[in-house]
Nucleic acid binder design. Structure first.
Lengths: 237, 237
DNA sequence: CTCATGTCGATACACTGTATTTTGGTGAGA
DNA sequence: TCTCACCAAAATACAGTGTATCGACATGAG
């Protein structure tokens, strides 16, 4: 009677928990986008009946929230930033990188308030970088303005990326060459400004355009911080 | 034999066309959000079998694209703006207003490239306002930066609005009072900056915060326009 | 009057999120 | 040791989804 005779005990599947569920969902989404995430497929990936999931989440939306918060962990700054500008700059670029790794994030960004622990930690770190600099309202405006830009810019970038992938052509090539619809539209002569841009514009790296747009917005914030409006806020410890 | 005896001829339903389909879809979405839009319901609203729609639309995504472009008609400026700043300012506020009238627009904004005729017309009008002002790249950066901000800000505003509606409390009230989860989080002491904001922050009108954020971004653009980088672009007529 | 054509409705399929019911195993009490 | 109660998990069920396919019918041509 050796090991080889004895059958392996039936490998009891690792006990279920939110972590495993979220990981499976993210794997599916990374592969095939958000629409590839179905509770049935997630459950199947975990060798479990679909209904089991409802012990850990109560709706599919909740699963999405968990996925988002899981990615916010990748967005957390690794070390305390030197100043507010570095903080916002880093936040923006890490959010962008995360969205390139997990394109589905672009579909969810800004879709609902992010209140998971990691998202809160990210906000905390960002706000902390403004400690003692200006009044509370200005800080709020600064953070929200930059976040809005970041959300919007990332969404556009991912949308263009997908469009390119779908047509096999880069954005500019496509317009130049013969995106049938747009070319026809431009040919009508009703869009002279647009036509000028399409014909004389040059291709720009997405990252570069993200970065310079971001710099502009950060400059704007800097300008406002120069003239503090009221009591500077201090974190009450 | 009077009119009253003669039965009405069976009112042949108005012939189908994209316009009617899109209008029906928008009606449904205005009422119950994007998820209330199903091809079957749209078809039912038009007294038609679901498959009829595929003569006019080849996929549900296409219907969404048409809906978006339909709303872009509401975003078109009514009169030629005085200068670029007025153009961008107006574009931003009209987009926001449209999103408040059609909340589902926030879910679609930035989700994919907007290439419908009305969207193109909006872009045309915007670009035209920069005629002769700076080089082409700067104009592009300006328009894209502002658009990104607008998309992001609107998405956040609508997301908060929905959250409020769902809980019956305004954002700040909610955090103050006892959004159970967040309050618990704050109580851990791990988020001192956030806690300061929640406790000492004052409620701000969404429109005001949208407007000031927008002004900041427009200021940033103005600063860049002051120092033109290269050949100013002229619309080639 | 017949036949071809092509449009429209009905049916069908594979799948979705989730509610409800059935099952099976495990503990306590007799 | 046997039985019963409980409770987690699986199976089934339901009402819907987007879309492909097929069949009938009306309309126009020959």
């Amino acid at each position: 009677m050796t090991v080889w005779d004895r059958p392996e005990p039936p490998t009891r599947p690792a006990p279920l928990d939110r972590g495993r569920i979220v990981a499976a969902a993210i794997a599916l989404a990374d592969e095939g986008g958000l629409e590839a995430v179905s509770l049935r497929k997630v459950a199947a990936l975990l060798d479990v009946g679909p209904m089991r999931l409802y012990g850990y989440i109560s709706t599919k939306e909740e699963l999405f929230d968990l996925m988002v918060d899981h990615v916010y962990a990748e967005i957390l700054p690794e070390e305390r930033p030197g100043d507010w500008r570095e903080a916002l700059h880093g936040l923006a670029h890490r959010t962008r990188q995360a969205s390139l790794r997990h394109e589905w994030l672009a579909d969810l960004l800004g879709g609902r308030p992010a209140l998971g622990p990691n998202a809160l930690a990210v906000t905390e770190a960002t706000l902390a970088a403004f400690d003692g600099l200006t009044d509370l309202d200005t800080v709020m405006r600064a953070v929200e303005t930059v976040s809005a830009y970041v959300t919007g810019a990332i969404r556009r970038e991912i949308a263009n990326l997908r469009a390119e992938r779908a047509t096999g052509l880069s954005d500019r090539e496509w317009q130049h060459a013969s995106g049938p619809h747009v070319t026809r539209m431009l040919a009508t002569g009703r869009f002279p400004a647009l036509a000028t841009f399409v014909h004389e514009g040059t291709e720009v790296e997405p990252e570069a355009s993200f970065a310079t747009g971001l710099d502009w917005v950060l400059d704007a914030v800097a300008a406002k911080l120069d003239r503090p409006a009221g009591e500077p806020f201090r974190i009450t410890p």
